[in-house]
Write a protein that binds this DNA or RNA. Structure first.
Length: 287
DNA sequence: AAACAGGCCTAAA
DNA sequence: TTTAGGCCTGTT
């Protein structure tokens, strides 16, 4: 079943390789295959938007929600234009959307992300799903579901050693145990404020401010969450030392994603490691 | 070889 | 309440 979604604010590469998700598989033709929950999607870019291909048309709504189709990104970008740096960052990355991902998968993924790099994060998550997820096969190949909290909670640290997740194994198990036992109820976070949700998630060992904010932003769509990672700290220190501009209020998470991508591209060119980062950054950002 | 990676935990003041 | 070390593993 194909669905043509016309939008100028979904660039698959910008969105799916922006560090908010880790399981999408890019095909040689530039399309992507993905799984969320038990739903499989093949999606490709077209001139005026994207084409979603699901197994059953009843899955369209799931994916439109996943891709946050109800949010007007054009309006938000307009609002951000009050700040020059952010304006440039947003215009260049106008195809980024903030996804609405499955909470448990997002929680575990960002626990794994700490003090780690994206290729290895992807590897660990992939091995986790290969070892403990259910297989679903179809027209676009074989997929594996993200394992449930119950499944992981029943495992031992030794069981998880094939993941090569290092010190994070203890955190993964603690999260799975607290979720499956109900000590942490991922459902009720939907009704919590940003601050309450952050404190609640921090009951899990291995979840601090940064990981919590990533989960709140990328799973619960609390778009004022502002995950403060090493990159964003550099950016805010250099450009927003006196505080964030007012035009971000209420939408700081979306701004964060534009800024993160803008400066990451600048600092880490596709071909090789960047050189002379500071001067390159300054040159571009002051335009 | 040594440092670093989209942090967090623990111990110590 | 804030601040240093250390941490699995992999890559450069």
């Amino acid at each position: 079943m194909e669905f043509h979604w016309k939008t100028r604010h979904l660039d698959l590469e910008q969105t799916l390789e922006s560090g908010q998700c880790f399981r999408w598989k890019r095909q040689d033709d530039g399309s992507y295959n993905g799984i969320s929950g038990r739903h499989i999607l093949h999606i490709r870019q077209c001139e005026d938007g994207v084409i979603l291909e699901t197994r059953d048309k009843s899955e369209n709504d799931y994916w439109l929600d996943y891709f946050d189709s109800q949010t007007d990104y054009g309006r938000i970008i307009e609002r951000f234009s009050a700040d020059n740096t952010l304006k440039a960052a947003a215009e260049e990355n106008r195809g980024i959307r903030i996804l609405r991902q499955e909470p448990f998968e997002t929680l575990i993924s960002f626990i794994i992300s700490q003090n780690n790099n994206i290729p290895r994060i992807k590897g660990i998550i992939s091995r986790l799903c290969d070892c403990f997820g259910d297989e679903i096969s179809g027209k676009y190949g074989v997929f594996r579901t993200f394992p449930t909290a119950e499944r992981i909670a029943a495992l031992s640290p030794d069981d998880l050693s094939p993941l090569r997740a290092g010190f994070r194994v203890r955190y993964i198990l603690d999260a799975a145990q607290k979720v499956s036992s109900g000590i942490v109820d991922l459902e009720i976070i939907n009704d919590m404020s940003l601050d309450d949700g952050r404190e609640y998630l921090k009951k899990i060992t291995g979840v601090g401010d940064k990981v919590a904010d990533c989960v709140l932003l990328f799973a619960y769509h609390k778009i004022d969450a502002f995950p403060s990672d090493v990159w964003i700290k550099r950016i805010t220190a250099e450009y927003y030392a006196d505080g964030l501009p007012e035009c971000l209020e209420g939408y700081r998470g979306i701004a964060q994603q534009y800024l993160y991508e803008y400066f990451r591209k600048m600092t880490v060119p596709e071909n090789s490691a960047g050189t002379d980062k500071t001067s390159e950054r300054k040159e571009k950002a002051l335009i």
